[in-house]
Write a protein that binds this DNA or RNA. Structure first.
Lengths: 220, 220
DNA sequence: GCTGCCATCGCATAAATGTGTGAAAATCAA
DNA sequence: TTGATTTTCACACATTTATGCGATGGCAGC
C-alpha cells in the first residue's frame, strides 16, 4: 500500500448538519497537513454545484440530513465523479442503510462515535485505496458473505442421484444429455425427475430449476 | 454497542509461526486486563486438542504456517465452535485468501503491519460483535458488493415484447399462461419465443432462462 | 412509396417433457 | 432376515415445446 499523502493535498468536502460536529471536524481537517477542506455544508441541496466547484477527492457524508439524505446524495456523487471516494457517517448501523450505501459505492462507513483523529485517518485511508469501517459495520458486511449456514431443506429430501439429475437440469441439459452424462437410460432419468418433482412440489423443469435456485441450491 | 470486557476475561488462543512476533503479541495479550492468553502455538497441528482444552473466545490465526495453513484450520474451528471468533492475520491481502477466509467465517482480517495495540483492540472488537479489518482488506470486500453495474447486452437486443415473454418464462410460466397473462394467442407467444431463442442463441426454455440469469437479467 | 422491424396470428410436424403403472436389483438399517 | 429406500429400467399416452413456413397490419425512417 503506497501512501500518497505527499503527492498533492487531499481535497475534502464535508456534509454534516450538526453545527458543532461540522465545525469540529472541519477545524481538524483544516489543521491536518496534507488535507485541504474544500467546503463544509449542513445539507446536500446544492450538491452538484459544490461538486463541480471543488472536485473533491474525498467526501465525508452524513446520512441524516434535512432535505436530501446522504443515501440519496451518494449515487449522485458516484455517477458524476466515480473516482471520488465517499465516507458515510451516521449514528445508525442498521443493515438497510449499510447495504444501500455499500451498493451505491460508499468506500467507508463510520459511526458517529468515531473519534475525530480516526476520521482524519479514514480520509487518508480511502484516498489510498482502503475502506475504513467501524468494526460493527464491517461485521454486518461480512455476514452477507458468510456461507448462510445453508438451510438445505432439499439436502435430506433429495437422494444423491436425484441431486445429480437436478444439477444436470440446472446446467440446461436435456434428459438425453443427462442420461448420457450419467450413463443411465432416459427412462431412469425420467423416473428420477418424476421423484424430484414430487419432492419439490413442482411439475416442470423450469419450476424445478427456479425453486432449486431460490432454495440456494446452486453454487454457480 | 455494549462493551462486555467486564463480564469475564476474554480467552484468546494465538497461532503464529514467527517466534518473535508470537512472543511479542503473547506478552501484550497477557499484560492486557480483561484478556487471558490461553495458549500460543507456532502451528495448528494439534488444533482440535487445543480447542477442546481451552475453549477460547477468540482465536488469532496466522495464515502462513508450516503444516496446516490458517485457511485450512479456520473451517475446522468454525465447525467445532461456531461461536468462537477468529481473526486472520497475514502479510498478503490477495483476493483469494480474503474471500476464502470470509466465506469460512472469519470475523476479522488484519495485515501483519497492524500495530500491536490495534491487535489487542481487535480482540475486544470481535468479542463484542465487531469485525476489525485492515482498511485495504475492507475495500476488497466492499468491491464485491459494488460489482454488479451489470451490462445488459440483451437490453437492446430484445424488443420490449420479447422481454415480456422472457420474463414470463423466467417466472416458470408455460406458453399458455404467458399468452393468458399478456392477452395474446399462444401462437404469438411461440413466435416471440422463437425470436428470443434466435437472438440469445439458444434452443430451449431452460437454456434461455439460464442465459438470461447469467447475463444479469433477473432482479429476483 | 418502399423497406425494415415489430407484434400479432395460423397450421403442421417432430421432438421433448410430464405422468401413470409396473417392476427388478442393490443397499442399508433394524 | 426383513423391510424401507434407492437406483435402475420399460411402455404408454397426453401435453408442451421447438421449429418451419407462412400471413397481416402498424409504424419509423429514408
Amino acid at each position: 500500500m503506497k501512501e500518497k499523502t505527499a503527492d498533492h493535498p487531499v481535497k475534502v468536502l464535508l456534509y454534516e448538519d450538526n453545527r458543532d460536529l461540522r465545525e469540529g471536524i472541519a477545524f481538524l481537517l483544516q489543521a491536518t497537513p496534507g488535507l485541504v477542506l474544500a467546503g463544509a455544508y449542513p445539507h446536500v441541496n446544492n450538491l452538484k454545484t459544490e461538486l463541480h466547484a471543488h472536485m473533491p477527492d474525498v467526501v465525508l457524508l452524513d446520512i441524516n440530513m434535512p432535505g436530501m439524505s446522504g443515501l440519496e446524495a451518494l449515487p449522485i456523487i458516484k455517477s458524476l465523479y466515480p473516482r471520488t471516494q465517499v465516507i458515510m457517517q451516521t449514528v445508525f448501523d442498521d443493515d438497510e442503510r449499510i447495504f444501500q450505501a455499500v451498493r451505491s459505492g460508499a468506500s467507508g462507513y463510520l459511526l458517529k462515535n468515531t473519534p475525530p483523529a480516526e476520521i482524519v485517518q479514514a480520509v487518508f485511508d480511502v484516498y489510498n485505496g482502503g475502506s475504513p469501517m467501524t468494526s460493527s459495520v464491517a461485521r454486518k458486511v461480512l455476514q452477507y458473505f458468510q456461507q448462510p449456514p445453508k438451510s438445505h431443506p432439499a439436502e435430506h429430501l433429495l437422494s444423491a442421484r436425484e441431486q445429480d439429475i437436478l444439477k444436470g437440469l440446472m446446467k440446461g441439459y436435456s434428459y438425453k444429455l443427462i442420461a448420457g452424462e450419467l450413463n443411465i437410460s432416459i427412462d431412469t432419468v425420467r423416473t428420477h425427475i418424476r421423484n424430484v418433482y414430487d419432492k419439490l412440489q413442482v411439475n416442470s423443469k423450469t419450476e424445478a430449476i427456479l425453486k432449486a435456485m431460490k432454495e440456494g441450491w446452486i453454487e454457480d
